[in-house]
Simulated scan of single mutants.
Amino acid sequence: MKLFVQIPCLNEEGTLGLVLDTIPRQIEGVDEIEILVIDDGSKDRTVEVAREHGVKHFVRHARNMGLARSFRDGVDYALAHGADIVVNTDGDNQYKQEYIGDLVAPVVRGEADIAIADRQTAKIAHFSWFKKRMQHFGSQVVNYAAGTRLPDAASGFRAYSKNALLKLNVITQFSYCMETIIQAGNKRLRIASVPITTNPKTRESRLFNNIFQHMAKSGGAITRSYLMFKPHVVLGWLAAFFAIVGAIPFVRFFILWCMGTAGGHIQSLVFGTTMLVAALLCVALLVIADLQRTNRVLIEETLERVKNIEYGRVDDTQISGIRAALIPGLLPGGDDPNSQED
Rank of each mutant, 00 (worst) to 15 (best):
F4W: 11
E28L: 08
E28W: 05
D31L: 08
L36Q: 05
L36H: 05
I38V: 15
S42K: 04
D44A: 02
F58Q: 06
A62Y: 09
A62M: 11
F71Q: 07
F71G: 06
G74W: 09
A78E: 13
L79V: 08
H81T: 05
G82H: 10
V87T: 10
N88T: 13
D90K: 09
D90Q: 14
K96G: 01
A105D: 15
G110C: 10
A112Q: 04
A112V: 07
T121F: 04
I124N: 00
H126R: 02
K131Y: 12
R133T: 12
Q135T: 12
F137H: 14
Q140T: 07
Y144K: 05
R149G: 02
P151F: 07
P151D: 03
S155N: 03
L165D: 10
N169F: 09
Y176D: 15
N186I: 10
K187R: 15
L189Y: 06
R190E: 06
V194W: 00
P195Q: 01
P195Y: 02
P200T: 00
L207T: 11
I211R: 02
R224W: 08
Y226C: 06
M228P: 00
V234L: 15
L235P: 10
A239G: 14
A240G: 03
V251K: 07
V251I: 15
F254V: 07
C258L: 14
T261K: 13
I266T: 09
T273R: 03
A279K: 09
A284I: 13
D290R: 14
T294L: 05
T302A: 13
L303A: 10
R305T: 09
V306T: 08
I319W: 03
P328Q: 07
L330W: 02
P332L: 01
